[in-house]
C-alpha cells in the first residue's frame, strides 16, 4: 500500500512544476567567494540542462542580497500551487549566536525566522538544502509539514566551512546516487550520497569530522543523520524528485501497455513486501522467492520495452 502511494506521488511530481532557487552567500575571502559562486553556477547549469521545463533562479555575487532573495521567493509564491515543488539551496557561511541562525549575504544577513516567513507564503512541497556552516541551527525555525530540510551540520556549533555542498552538487551529477535505478534522483538519495561522501572525505583525510549532515522532513520531529522507517524521517525526501536522469517509465505509459504496467506494479509491491518479511523467513526460501519475482519483473519489463 505504501509503495502504491509512492508511485502516485512520483506521477504527480512529474506533472507539477518545480522551481529551483539557489543562493551563494557572502564568501568573505576571495577563496570562499569563488568556491561558493562556482558551486552555485555548477548547480545552475546542471538543473537547467536536466530540467528544461523547470524554473531555475540562481543568485550569487553582489546581487545575492536578502532583498533579492525575498523578491525571488515572493515571485515564486505568486504562481505556486499545491502540486508544485520548490527547492531552495543555500551555499555559503552561516552563523549562530545561540539564539538565531543567519545566512550571510552581501548587506544584511537573512535569519532562519525571516526565511521561514518567506517560504511559508509559497504553496506546495518544499525542500530546503542549507549547506552552510552552523546550518543545523536553522531547523527549529524552518520545520513544517510538507517541507523537507537538509542541513550540512548537526547544529549551530559546527562552525567550520563545510564540504557537504560539493558532494550535494556531485550527487546531482553522478548517476550513482540513483540507488534504486528508477532514473530519478530523490532528495533522500542525494542526501545519502552527499552525507556518505562527506564522511569519507574526513575519514580519508584523517581529520575529525567538523560537520554532520542531518535531515528532518516530518515537520514535527528532530533532525536525524540516518533517516529510516524506525525514526520516521525520510518519507517526504524519498518521494521528493530532485532530478530526472532518464525517461521516467511512468510518463511513457501508453493505454495498451497499462495491463503490463499494472502487473509490473504488482510485482514491485510483492518484492517490497517480501523484503520486509526477509528477517522472518529462512534465507534460502527468501532468495528463491525473490529470484522468481525478479525474473517475472524482468520479463514484464522486457514486454513493456518492446
Amino acid at each position: 500500500m505504501r509503495i502504491a502511494a509512492l508511485i502516485v506521488s512520483c506521477a504527480v511530481s512529474l506533472q507539477a512544476a518545480t522551481t529551483y532557487v539557489t543562493v551563494a552567500g557572502l564568501g568573505g575571502e576571495p577563496e570562499y567567494e569563488q568556491r561558493f559562486t562556482s558551486l552555485a553556477k555548477d548547480l545552475d547549469k546542471l538543473l537547467k540542462s536536466s530540467s528544461p521545463g523547470a524554473r531555475v533562479e540562481t543568485l550569487y555575487g553582489p546581487t545575492a542580497t536578502k532583498a533579492k532573495l525575498a523578491e525571488v521567493l515572493a515571485s515564486v509564491g505568486k504562481t505556486s500551487t499545491a502540486q508544485d515543488s520548490l527547492v531552495l539551496t543555500l551555499i555559503g557561511h552561516g552563523t549562530y549566536d545561540g539564539v538565531e541562525y543567519k545566512f550571510n549575504l552581501p548587506g544584511p544577513d537573512v535569519s532562519s525566522i525571516e526565511l521561514a516567513s518567506m517560504l511559508d507564503r509559497i504553496a506546495g512541497q518544499q525542500l530546503v538544502v542549507n549547506t552552510t556552516s552552523a546550518s543545523g541551527a536553522c531547523v527549529p525555525a524552518l520545520k513544517k509539514e510538507g517541507r523537507a530540510i537538509i542541513t550540512a551540520t548537526k547544529g549551530g556549533t559546527e562552525k567550520n566551512a563545510t564540504v557537504f555542498p560539493r558532494y550535494w552538487v556531485e550527487a546531482l551529477r553522478d548517476t550513482a546516487s540513483d540507488v534504486d535505478k528508477n532514473e530519478l534522483i530523490s532528495a533522500l538519495e542525494a542526501y545519502r550520497y552527499a552525507n556518505e561522501k562527506t564522511a569519507r572525505f574526513f575519514e580519508t583525510q584523517k581529520r575529525i569530522a567538523s560537520e554532520h549532515a542531518q535531515i528532518e522532513d516530518t515537520g514535527k520531529g528532530e533532525p536525524v543523520r540516518e533517516p529510516s522507517a524506525e525514526n520516521g524521517e525520510g518519507l517526504l525526501a524519498g518521494r521528493f524528485v530532485l532530478l530526472r536522469i532518464g525517461t521516467a517509465q511512468m510518463a511513457a505509459a501508453s493505454p495498451e501497455k497499462r495491463k503490463l504496467l499494472e502487473r509490473k506494479e504488482g510485482l514491485e509491491q510483492q518484492i517490497a513486501s517480501l523484503k520486509y518479511q526477509r528477517a522472518a523467513m529462512p534465507s534460502e526460501q527468501y532468495r528463491k522467492m525473490l529470484t522468481e519475482l525478479l525474473v517475472q519483473l524482468a520479463q514484464t519489463q522486457a514486454e513493456l520495452d518492446k
Partner: peptide
C-alpha cells in the same frame, strides 16, 4: 539478483538476469 534486490527496476541487470536464467 543482489543488484535487483536493491534496484528492482534496474534495466541492464534485468536483461542480464533473463540471459543467465
Amino acid at each position: 539478483i543482489s543488484a535487483l534486490e536493491t534496484a528492482p527496476g534496474f534495466r541492464p541487470a534485468q536483461k542480464l538476469l533473463l540471459e543467465l536464467t
